[in-house]
Design a protein around this nucleic acid. Structure first.
Length: 575
DNA sequence: GCCGTTTTCGGCCCGACTGTTTTCAGTCG
């Protein structure tokens, strides 16, 4: 995608300028512009062609000229010149904890060091300590930083991070000193991957809290222990920070440590205009520094003339403006979900019987589930005759079970030519038909888009599952014009899935928001292959919330009767 | 480099910590 390339170009310009000591605000301008480009839904070429670059917030005449040059020629003269002055490999130094642009430039200019290997060698040999502002301690920190980068650079899946956070929370909750406990940061925002976990504890007596925290099971290393902050590394490599804050500042700290960074910066800029200073202790009115909020998050937002903003929206993607106009949507919640429509049983590659799944789903409070086993040609796909038996089986089961309605269903393969792996005659027997791609994922974009659009033409199909096919950290999404798919879904009344499995989360947050914009229905499904997977729903709901979705945007918030009429409408074209 | 209901120039988020320093620069979240 050209947009991503432009964003990377701007980031490189920003990094290199930062390294040579350019004005930090200028550097920030490059990075903000890169972020703005990443957020666009329109191809950058189109915007360039229409001469509308400067309409993007954060892009002025100078950046517009550079972007235009890049889109038209594939190069930027200034960047080429900068690269000859600063080896681009120095950018890697910025990733090393405790190493920033000033130090990167220093070691290059004085010692000619351009790679992490050279840097490590020089540090080992004690050559860095003689540089101005450096000493043995800094040398040691750089070595440790390199080590840390190598062992813990990866990000963690949302469920892994939540599991760790839930464990710590339940342990700390046992202490009378811990008044309130809140996992903050990107975890609270339900970002798809997590770098480290931040947990806030409101307390007037932090010591017992910190003592308990650093002695929990599963900790590999205690990185720091103090009365306001302690930091540990768990055995699986996840870093967790616990911060103790006084109860009267808990709201301000929660706001501050939840971020995102961009959201907080925008908030503080807004504060300045109102003559207010915002920090992790509260909101203060200048010049007397009178504290006007801080105990609750609602109070912090209120002091800024804003309604409270749900954490999942805090990405500086228009939520502050929406809060100002009191137009924050009532986001979908886990408790709005009435059923799970994407579940595999042991008839295909799931590990559980249909009865056990129904029982577990019923305990989660669901009104209905759909059993949607795989079709051939997946090796474990259910054969057509067996599907007929399964449908009969489920119908009989429904007669015995009162607690929950079990819908018959299938996750049918979309074959490379866009046809479906089962005959229409069989498909129309199912209550719910999900279609999805599981093979030949490396098609060119046009072909893949055509393939999925063709499957969507079949009115027996209700839902397209995991529409981009990505596996977080393992497999890139296939090339597909997702905007076109979303537009078509809106026209056809076909639902797109937010697959709640933490290794998929596909559609992702921005695509979910696009669904809302175009009016495409969304289904949140867990793709459960075991009972424990049913609990993935919280991550799918988190992603939906990050996409600004409300209950009305999500079909499995509908009561059973209305869901059935939605499914019927898709097939008959009318209610 | 961007931007304007104080401004087309002079601002640009805020505080803590660390290590190197005799008062501060660099880095981080």
């Amino acid at each position: 995608m050209q947009n991503e390339k432009v964003a990377e170009m701007l980031e490189e310009l920003g990094d290199l300028k930062e390294i040579i000591g350019e004005n930090p605000f200028k550097v920030r301008a490059y990075r903000r512009a890169a972020e703005a480009i990443r957020r666009l839904n329109t191809p950058i070429e189109e915007i360039v062609r229409e001469g509308k670059l400067s309409e993007i917030e954060g892009i002025g005449a100078s950046l517009a000229a550079k972007i235009t040059e890049f889109v038209k020629t594939g190069k930027v003269k200034e960047l080429e010149e900068l690269r000859s002055k600063v080896p681009p490999s120095l950018r890697a130094f910025l990733e090393i904890p405790d190493m920033g642009p000033r130090t990167a430039w220093l070691v290059y200019e004085r010692l000619g060091i351009t790679t992490i290997e050279e840097l490590e060698k020089a540090a080992r040999e004690g050559k860095l300590r003689h540089l101005p502002g450096m000493g043995p301690k800094k040398e040691e920190n750089i070595l440790r930083g390199i080590q840390l980068l190598r062992t813990t650079a990866q990000r963690f899946r949302l469920d892994v991070a939540w599991k760790t956070a839930d464990y710590i929370t339940s342990e700390l909750k046992q202490l009378p000193e811990a008044k309130l406990i809140l996992p903050a940061g990107s975890l609270r925002r339900m970002k798809e991957t997590i770098g480290d976990v931040d947990i806030l504890v409101a307390t007037t007596n932090p010591e017992p809290v910190m003592d308990k925290f650093v002695s929990l099971d599963g900790i590999r290393d205690v990185l720091a222990k103090g009365t306001t902050k302690s930091s540990v590394l768990f055995e699986h490599g996840l870093q967790v920070d616990v911060r103790a804050v006084p109860p009267e500042s808990f709201g301000a700290a929660a706001q501050y440590f939840t971020g995102s960074k961009d959201h907080n910066i925008s908030l503080r800029e807004r504060g300045i205009k109102l003559g207010l200073k915002i920090n992790e202790y509260g909101v203060f009115r200048e010049p007397a520094d009178e504290k006007i909020a801080g105990e609750t998050e609602e109070g912090v937002y209120q002091a800024l003339g804003l309604v409270w903003i749900p954490p999942e929206l805090r990405e500086n993607r228009g939520e502050i403006e929406a809060a100002e106009r009191n137009e924050i949507p009532t986001l979908v919640e886990l408790s709005d979900i009435r059923g799970d429509l994407h579940i595999h049983s042991n008839w295909s590659d799931g590990s559980e019987t249909i009865e056990a799944l129904a029982e577990a789903a019923s305990q989660l409070g669901y009104e209905y589930i759909a059993i949607t086993d795989h079709s051939p040609p997946m090796g474990w796909g259910v054969k057509p005759d067996d599907f007929k038996r399964q449908i009969d089986y489920i119908r009989k089961l429904n007669e015995r079970i009162d607690e929950i309605a079990i819908l018959t269903g299938v996750e049918v393969d979309i074959l490379p030519d866009g046809s479906l792996a089962l005959e229409d005659g069989l498909l129309k027997e199912f209550d719910v038909v999900i279609a999805s791609v599981h093979s030949q994922m490396r098609m060119p974009k046009e072909k893949m888009t055509e393939r999925i659009l063709r499957a969507m033409e079949n009115r027996l199909v209700h839902i397209i599952a995991h529409p981009t096919g990505r596996l977080i950290g393992q497999r890139e999404p296939y090339e597909v014009d997702i905007e076109l798919i979303i537009k078509r879904a809106a026209q056809e009344g076909i639902a797109l899935e937010i697959n709640a499995s933490p290794e998929r989360l596909d559609l992702k947050d921005e695509h979910a928001r696009m669904c809302k914009e175009y009016g495409a229905p969304v289904m949140i499904g867990t793709d459960a292959h075991a009972i424990v997977h049913l609990e993935f729903m919280r991550y799918g709901v988190g992603t939906a919330r990050r996409g600004w979705l409300e209950p009305k945007d999500v079909i499995n918030t509908l009561p059973l009767k209305k869901l059935l009429s939605f499914l019927k409408q898709r097939r008959t074209g009318r209610l």
